[in-house]
Design a protein around this nucleic acid. Sequence first.
DNA 1: TGTATAAATGAATACGTATTCATTTTGCAT
DNA 2: ATGCAAAATGAATACGTATTCATTTATACA
Lengths: 334, 334
Amino acid sequence: MNKKNYTSQDVAELAGVSQSTVSRVFAGNTNVSEKKRKKILDAAAKLEYQPNAHARSLITRKTMMIGIVMRNIRNPFYSAVLEIFHNRLAALGYHMIFINSENEEIQEKEITQLLEYNVEGVIITDALLSSSASQKFNRNGIVVILFNRYTEHMESSAVFCDNYLAAKQIATYLVEMGHKSFAFISGPSDTSTTIDRLKGFKEVLDEKKITDLMIEPGNYTYESGFKAAQELMTKNRNIDCIFCGNDIIALGVMDAIRVIGLKIPEDVSVIGFDNIRMAEWPSYSLTTWEQPLEEMVDSTVELMLKEINDKEATPQIMMMKGHLVVRTSVKAKK
Amino acid sequence: MNKKNYTSQDVAELAGVSQSTVSRVFAGNTNVSEKKRKKILDAAAKLEYQPNAHARSLITRKTMMIGIVMRNIRNPFYSAVLEIFHNRLAALGYHMIFINSENEEIQEKEITQLLEYNVEGVIITDALLSSSASQKFNRNGIVVILFNRYTEHMESSAVFCDNYLAAKQIATYLVEMGHKSFAFISGPSDTSTTIDRLKGFKEVLDEKKITDLMIEPGNYTYESGFKAAQELMTKNRNIDCIFCGNDIIALGVMDAIRVIGLKIPEDVSVIGFDNIRMAEWPSYSLTTWEQPLEEMVDSTVELMLKEINDKEATPQIMMMKGHLVVRTSVKAKK
DNA sequence: TGTATAAATGAATACGTATTCATTTTGCAT
DNA sequence: ATGCAAAATGAATACGTATTCATTTATACA
């Protein structure tokens, strides 16, 4: 037995006014006399009336829904991202449709879902967006913002940390600390983050005429970091510092190195990227690069609102800085 | 400039049929000739037609949306919960509206949001549901399922681990291992999980005539575990084992104990609850109680579907077992 | 070939709201 | 009291789909 959902018509009858007037009250329209407004609100309260968001969006063409597609929600960095996005968007009255993309690239099915629901915008984090998918969103007037990623063909705005610059500074720091033999554990090789971080890192080493660099592929998970470190340490026992594509990799690396019986940072220095909460846990005390998460989210939301309200706005790239957080996982070599 | 969204009417005109027939094709109705179906699908493809989910749900009264309200998404246990729920529900064609409740209790505003969107069901994890809120959902014909929680006044179904039994087995295990001086670090004291875990734990100690139990309040976070352990160890240096309300507390406890200079498990045994992934990281190797997460989610979804399709179904309580996962954070005392 | 029956189709309508437009009421200055 | 502008109101309509009902077309069988 489905309970009856009361409609604005029901409220109107109970309050003795027309449906239009009820609608005006709930749409925030000011042109309603105080007397009737009172009556209507009373009637609505009595019936526990709730406006129907779907009917409303059908006519206003505003759904107040934002799609957020993530991969790897188990990565604490993205849990934090999700939480912050939720807080910001909820404060603005937007609702989040959460999509956890299993694949490297956002899938047709997932796009369709978002299109069917007429989300006003889509935030894509840590998942690649093909050109055709992006066009599909564009054609339907849906704003797309890439978070912590960007694509070459700039149809969408993007907000991310300047990974190239960060990696350069990290490399510089490590060299200054006297390290000679380097390793880099990457994320998936076709993501902009990986490419830029590697590029910046390499560039500095090249400048310093350092050629001793091993690159090990990973996929931004603890397990991949763990395995990569095992690989590295068996291949080359002389590595004295490892730059990890992100913090969760770094944690895996540290654990793997300790399992082997080596010490951090005495035997091997480890440096991460993101500054997730765990990085400061005493078991790890990971030196890492902090991404200015709150600012990145704020910028993303701001950009999104701007583009929602002005569909002609040109896509924009926002590159944030971040900074090094020095803890104890990197040690100066004498 | 908003791009035009094509409608079933547009497709109908292009295909030379009526809107009804187009609708039939997309609603999966079988009574359409193969010839026209082809034509319609071609026309739809040409226009990149997407049915409007809101218009559809207005008439079918099925929104295919499920609300999931969580707190503490940064707790890895709940990240995993979210991921698994998403996978299951997406496979069934349901979409998730994600709500991260900041407060101990689900708020009026959040309830309203879910009601306005006519979600078909709400999954509430780790957030308390007041009786009035629950009634509100019920009156609107919205199914509510509590996950990992239950309330006394049983208006809603609930799925959770048998915390009472688990705590009893944990206590038994610790006693058998020769421990004498116990501590329990709880979650918020008004949650069913905390109450049941404490009850079971205490009961076994009582049976064994053990009175040496300290109880320290926490809130299911790393930081609270860290602080609680510091408190405990300064108050009573003789504690030889700590039962933590969940794993993330346990990690904080272990770190705090190590910072003090004590060893785990030689000086203090630590045991957790949940079996999150980090529990098996070598830095912690935490002995803990595994909640059968996948089964719990499956049961929740199953229950939800049943109640969505039969609103008369009586609320049901599903209590799962789980089992002890022995690692190395608990040591036998001689 | 003709008839009974099933399948396919389209016209019309409903879902619950916001909004336009025409009409009525109110407030206010004279 | 009168007239006028402004505010308030209601009737009607649109949003995009699914569905009912009546009608047409195809199918099967004798």
